[in-house]
C-alpha cells in the first residue's frame, strides 16, 4: 500500500502549494471570530442586545447554522475538482498504467484531501476558539471542541459524497451538477420536504420515525451533534433537534456520521474500480 502514501503526499504538496490550507483555515478563523462577536446576540447564553464574545454555547449555535451551508459545499468542490481535473487532464490515464492498485490511487487521494480539509478547518476554528476562550473563559470550551469534531465529520462526509458522485458519471459538467444537487438536496431540500410531509400527515408520524428519517441526512446529523452538548438547545433550536436529542446519544450521532463517511467512500471506490478511460 505504498501507493496510498505517494498519492497522500502528492495531495498534501498540491494543497500546500495552492494555498488551500491557508485559504480554508483563514476563512474558518475569520468567520468564527466575526460570528462569535457579531452574530450571537439572540442566541442562548448571550447577553441580549450586546455586541461581543458572549459564550461558547451562543458561538456554536451561530457557527453550526453557517457551517451547515458552508462546509459541505467546500468539501464537495474540493473532491469534485480533484477528480474532474485528474480525469480531464489525462492524469488517471497515466496513473492507471503505473504498477499500482486503483485502491491506492483512490484512497491515497481521499486521505490527502481529507487531511487538508481537517487540518485547515480545525486550525481555523481552534485558533478562533482560543481567542474567544481567552476573552470569555474556558468553562464551556468542550462544547466548542464538540462542534469542531462535528464540523470535521461533516466535511469528511461530503468529501466522501463528492468522491462517490464524481465517479458516478464521466463528464465534468455532470460531476459538477451532481455534486451541487447533493448539496442542495441535503442542506436545503431534505428538511423542507420532511416538514411538508409531516404537515401533510398531520402528526400521524411517530416521533421515533421522524427522528430516524433525519438520520438519512448528514447535514441534520451534524446540527444535532454540534449542539448535542448544549443544555438549553430545546428553547432555541427547533423541533428536529429536540426530537433527535431525545432519542439519540452523542456516541450514536458520531457513529452514524462516521458511517456517512465510510459508505459513500466505499461506494465511490467500487465505481472508481470500474472506471475506464472513455476519451
Amino acid at each position: 500500500m505504498k501507493g496510498v502514501v505517494h498519492f497522500f503526499s502528492r495531495e498534501i504538496t498540491l494543497g500546500r502549494r495552492n494555498r488551500l490550507i491557508l485559504g480554508l483555515g483563514s476563512m474558518t478563523f475569520f468567520l468564527s471570530l466575526i460570528l462569535a462577536y457579531f452574530g450571537t446576540i439572540q442566541n442562548p447564553g448571550a447577553e441580549k442586545g450586546v455586541l461581543g464574545f458572549s459564550s461558547f454555547e451562543a458561538t456554536v449555535i451561530s457557527l453550526t447554522a453557517l457551517s451547515t451551508y458552508l462546509i459541505p459545499i467546500i468539501a464537495l468542490v474540493l473532491g469534485f475538482d480533484s477528480t474532474a481535473n485528474e480525469m480531464e487532464t489525462g492524469s488517471f490515464e497515466l496513473f492507471f498504467t503505473y504498477p499500482l492498485k486503483k485502491s491506492e490511487i483512490y484512497f491515497g487521494k481521499f486521505l490527502g484531501l481529507a487531511t487538508l480539509l481537517v487540518v485547515s478547518t480545525t486550525t481555523g476554528f481552534l485558533v478562533a476558539g482560543l481567542i474567544i476562550g481567552w476573552k470569555i473563559g474556558w468553562e464551556s470550551f468542550g462544547i466548542y471542541l464538540n462542534f469542531v469534531l462535528a464540523s470535521n465529520l461533516l466535511g469528511l462526509t461530503f468529501l466522501a459524497l463528492s468522491f462517490f458522485f464524481s465517479n458516478l458519471v464521466e463528464k465534468r459538467a455532470q460531476m459538477l451538477g451532481l455534486n451541487l444537487f447533493s448539496w442542495f438536496f441535503f442542506v436545503i431540500l431534505f428538511d423542507l420536504g420532511l416538514i411538508l410531509l409531516l404537515v401533510a400527515l398531520e402528526g400521524r408520524v411517530p416521533q421515533e420515525v421522524a427522528s430516524a428519517v433525519l438520520f438519512l441526512n448528514p447535514a441534520d446529523l451534524f446540527r444535532f451533534m454540534s449542539t448535542a452538548t448544549i443544555e438549553n438547545i430545546r428553547n432555541s433550536y427547533g423541533i428536529a433537534a429536540v426530537v433527535a436529542h431525545n432519542f439519540f446519544s452523542l456516541k450514536v450521532l458520531i457513529l452514524t456520521l462516521a458511517l456517512w463517511v465510510a459508505l459513500p467512500l466505499c461506494g465511490g471506490y467500487l465505481l472508481f474500480k470500474r472506471r475506464s478511460i472513455k476519451r
Binding site: 502528492r10 504538496t13 502549494r17 489525462g90 492524469s91 497515466l94
Partner: peptide
Amino acid sequence: PENLYIHGHL
C-alpha cells in the same frame, strides 16, 4: 501520453 497536463503546482 499525447496530452498530459501535469499538475502545474509540482
